[in-house]
Design a binder for these strands. Structure first.
Lengths: 193, 193
DNA sequence: ATCATATATTTCCAAATGGAACTTGTTTAT
DNA sequence: ATAAACAAGTTCCATTTGGAAATATATGAT
């Protein structure tokens, strides 16, 4: 019973996934190839799932509050940990400092956060949500939580615990991963416009 | 034995993760808050892990080949599934069509891919790697695979299978998730520039 | 004390980005 | 058969982005 349905003559790189989903319902062939025929199955699925979350939610934030993704990330970050520095938000979010600097300026102007110089170290600006900023955080948070709960509906409670634990293991190991890869030149020409 | 170490008076949102990693070695307080004190534990960990992979690798691609992320994504996509359309790459990668259109033009100019009109449907341009393009793909792929393997070193073989299966479940369920969230206005003012 | 080094943040600016309009070609409805 | 609707891809252009330099402050070495 050979399927012709786009199945590749390629080893299956997905450990623990039986053949079933290859002829995936609702997924185009290239997405299927990236999901099931990709030696980097983990990182593609990470990016894919992150995207399926980020796009609708940050789009909703933009339409609802007129805030860009980095701007909302500042709000969310302070919602979880108030009184932090721009640097902390940069490190934990991956947005560059200058992008966050602009976001912070705009949020201060909107009265959603306040920025006070730290007297102990005058380079540092301590950031806090204002009452309005916290109201926005608390109003918007349920959308994010609900969407995540919807994503997790596919798993039962045990599976959620297992997934949480496995991802936590990866995150804890991540402090040992390089933030940059060695800089030697390749045999290919460097091809710039 | 109460720790003062930045632990919040906040419920622990991470199912299946014991208290240990809260005082996480090598993670700053805000990252720890986002990882262990975040109601959206899944999606933050997805984004966090994706970032720890994307940043060093696409940075390496840029330095080594002078290709931007969307440009390399085209190469990688065709490496996995040759003879696809720009649309397929857009759908499977999340990059907008126009960004990919420019990337494709540059890659054609560099001789790394070729673009031929489909006679059956003349709107469509079938994309294929050239010999040089495939060489670049095959030379660069091991970097990506090696990095992913390094990420997975934290897990044993059973755990990898479990993680793969759980993420596959989420991906298969994702066809039912909305790509956009309802557009009603909020009680907050719309705060633009 | 002084100077080099490191850090937090901001500013500058060339380049990338992406929404929207446009072009070309195909499908569907009447 | 014709027109509306749809789809792939490109172009336009105002905005965003992020690397690098600049600024201000702090730390460490001599």
């Amino acid at each position: 019973m050979q399927s012709r349905q786009g199945r590749q003559d390629r080893e299956d790189f997905s450990p623990g996934v039986t053949g079933g989903p290859v002829a995936a319902a609702g997924l185009d062939e290239m997405t299927a190839a990236k999901l099931w025929g990709n030696p980097c199955w983990l990182t593609y699925r990470l990016n894919y799932l992150a995207l399926r979350y980020n796009v609708p939610l940050y789009n909703w934030v933009e339409r609802t509050y007129g805030l860009s993704r980095p701007e909302y990330v500042v709000i969310y970050s302070l919602g979880l940990k108030d009184g932090a520095l721009a640097r902390d938000i940069a490190n934990s979010s991956g947005f560059p400092q200058n992008t966050l600097s602009r976001a912070i300026q705009k949020l201060v102007g909107l009265g959603l956060i306040e920025r006070t110089a730290d007297d102990a170290d005058r380079r540092c600006n301590v950031l806090r949500l204002t009452k309005e900023g916290r109201a926005l955080f608390e109003e918007s948070l349920p959308r994010f939580v609900d969407f995540e709960h919807m994503m997790l509906e596919a798993l039962d409670e045990d599976e959620r615990k297992t997934l949480s634990a496995l991802m936590a293991k990866l995150v804890l190991a991540s402090t040992g991963w390089p933030g940059r890869i060695g800089r030697e030149e390749s045999s290919q020409e460097k091809a710039n416009s």
